[in-house]
Amino acid sequence: MRRPVSTPGPIAFDATLWDEPTTGIGLYTRCLAEALEAQGVRLDRMGARKSGEHPRGVQKRTSWTLATLPRLLKASPPPVYHALSNFNLPLRRTPGTAYVLTVHDLVPLDLPHTVSAPYRWQFRLWLARSLMLADRLVCISESTRQDLVRRFPQVEPRTVVVHNGVDHVNAAPLNEADEEFLHALNLPGDYVLYAGSLDVRKNVELVLEAQERLHARGRPFTLVLAGQAWYGSGKVEKRIERMRSEGLDVRPLGYQTPAIFYALMRRAALFVFPSRYEGFGLPPLEAMRLGTPTVVSTAGSLPEVCGDAAPAVEPDDAEGLAAVIDRLLRSPEERRALSEAGQRQAAKFTWARAAEGTRAAYDAALRHR
Score class of each variant (00 low, 15 high):
217 R>G: 13
12 A>P: 05
154 Q>N: 03
258 P>I: 05
192 V>P: 09
82 H>I: 05
266 R>C: 04
221 F>M: 03
267 R>Y: 02
40 G>W: 00
291 G>K: 02
204 V>E: 12
197 S>D: 15
107 V>M: 11
173 P>Y: 08
78 P>D: 09
241 E>N: 08
112 P>R: 00
334 E>I: 06
204 V>S: 08
43 L>M: 07
291 G>Q: 02
158 R>D: 09
345 Q>A: 07
250 V>P: 03
365 A>W: 07
124 R>M: 11
247 G>D: 06
173 P>R: 03
206 L>I: 06
107 V>P: 00
302 L>A: 13
348 K>C: 06
102 T>A: 10
32 L>A: 04
335 R>W: 14
100 V>K: 04
75 A>F: 04
252 P>S: 05
274 P>W: 11
178 D>V: 00
180 E>I: 02
16 T>Q: 14
306 C>L: 15
39 Q>K: 04
242 R>I: 07
342 G>M: 10
276 R>T: 09
127 L>N: 02
162 V>R: 02
78 P>Q: 01
7 T>H: 12
54 H>E: 13
134 A>I: 04
102 T>R: 05
346 A>R: 00
17 L>S: 07
129 R>A: 14
69 L>R: 07
327 R>F: 09
301 S>W: 05
231 Y>C: 03
33 A>L: 07
176 E>Y: 01
100 V>F: 11
70 P>Q: 04
355 A>H: 05
166 V>F: 07
310 A>M: 13
309 A>N: 11
300 G>W: 12
9 G>M: 07
333 E>T: 13
186 N>A: 15
91 L>I: 13
7 T>P: 01
163 H>I: 00
91 L>R: 14
101 L>G: 08
148 L>N: 08
32 L>T: 02
169 V>G: 01
332 P>T: 04
203 N>M: 07
172 A>C: 14
306 C>E: 10
44 D>A: 12
360 A>L: 14
4 P>H: 10
33 A>Y: 10
253 L>K: 09
35 A>T: 00
319 E>F: 11
310 A>F: 13
66 L>G: 01
50 K>F: 15
249 D>F: 05
278 E>D: 12
250 V>G: 11
12 A>N: 01
102 T>K: 02
222 T>Q: 08
225 L>K: 00
263 A>R: 14
278 E>I: 11
203 N>I: 07
217 R>E: 15
